[in-house]
């Protein structure tokens, strides 16, 4: 509501001018209209698709599955809480009877719910994206500063850029399985495999766009830097980075989009307990609810992807020196 009233102050003040009505139409009503049309189209279309698991779920069924998933999450959390209260009381009783009694504190073996899986997916994608960024941004800067380096790296980048995550996955799996062997691993193997696959696929847009941004720093500013005799480090920090921020963020946003898409595929095959595995498990499960639950996951994936992009956009507005620049 506060967003609405700040965007459309007329709503709260009672005076509505024609321009405000136009803004309201474009800003709120038209997206609603689009959404309603989509829901109608979905409902009608779904009724006409008969699958081996029954009719394709419409909006209503999917909503029902969503509340099922929420309920399952709540039940699971309650079970966990119950388990721990039970354990504490039992231990307390044991101690009261015999102070020397051996006390067992066990961990609840949590069965990951839909929301746990969302969390896993988010952590995995952010790890992969972060790794990719801390490699791609410095590389992009070096490549962008040096024409020869750019020429040397360009063919490699162009060849690696279009490779599908599904092609990387077997290689990554084998490499990780042989290289990452430990009795009590800090991370699950499936997590590492997913992170590396995400990283390999989301390196390139950031690297290329950073390089292009760095190479495009105005000649005048480079001359200024030379005349002021700035050190290499100051040159990069004060001149190169601020001017290439818009391009760099374009790359980062492309990368994050790719990372999120790749992650779902990687989780399906690597069995990392995230949204990808959820979809795969439901598909294998094949109950009458499965299609609806997959639809919930699909919509969730879309909404999270959108929110990730918006978050990065906000970071860009914060990092950019030019606050008046329109970012979209």
């Amino acid at each position: 509501m506060s967003v609405l009233s700040s965007k459309f102050p007329a709503l709260t003040m009672g005076k509505i001018s024609p321009e405000k009505i136009r803004d309201l139409m474009l800003g709120v009503i038209m997206p609603m209209v689009g959404l309603v049309f989509f829901l109608i189209f979905w409902q009608v279309g779904a009724q006409n698709i008969k699958t081996s698991l029954g009719t394709f779920p419409g909006p209503k069924e999917v909503l029902a599955q969503w509340s099922n998933l929420v309920d399952e999450h709540k039940t699971e959390r309650k079970r966990e809480a119950d388990f721990y209260t039970h354990q504490t009381t039992r231990n307390a009783e044991a101690l009261a009877q015999d102070p020397a009694a051996e006390i067992k504190v066990r961990k609840f073996s949590r069965h990951p719910t839909f929301f746990d899986k969302i969390k896993t997916s988010l952590i995995t994608v952010l790890c992969g994206f972060f790794l990719a960024s801390i490699i791609a941004i410095p590389m992009g800067i070096f490549i962008g500063l040096n024409q020869s380096l750019y020429r040397a790296f360009n063919p490699i980048i162009q060849i690696f850029k279009p490779i599908s995550p599904l092609a990387w996955l077997p290689l990554v799996t084998l490499a990780v399985s042989s290289a990452y062997q430990s009795e009590s691993p800090l991370f699950a193997k499936s997590f590492i495999i997913s992170v590396i696959t995400v990283m390999l696929c989301s390196l390139w847009p950031t690297m290329i766009n950073t390089a292009v941004g760095v190479a495009g720093v105005s000649k005048d500013l480079i001359n200024v830097s030379r005349v002021l005799r700035l050190s290499w480090f100051t040159h990069v920090r004060k001149i190169v980075l601020p001017s290439s921020i818009p391009m760099m963020f374009t790359g980062l946003r492309l990368s994050l989009g790719i990372a999120w898409m790749v992650l779902i595929a990687a989780e399906m095959l690597a069995q990392n307990p995230g949204l990808g595995k959820f979809v795969w498990d439901e598909f294998q499960n094949g109950s009458s609810d499965s299609l609806g639950r997959i639809c919930v996951a699909v919509l969730t994936i879309g909404i999270i992807g959108f929110m990730l992009d918006r978050t990065l956009l906000a970071v860009q507005s914060w990092a950019n020196w030019d606050k008046s620049a329109i970012v979209r």
Partner: peptide, 19 residues
């Protein structure tokens, strides 16, 4: 090579817009 004893004033001011 450029040096601080020869300072340049550029035609289009060439100030860094972010400073």
């Amino acid at each position: 090579e450029p040096g601080p004893e020869r300072a340049v004033v550029f035609q289009n001011h060439s100030l860094l817009p972010w400073l």
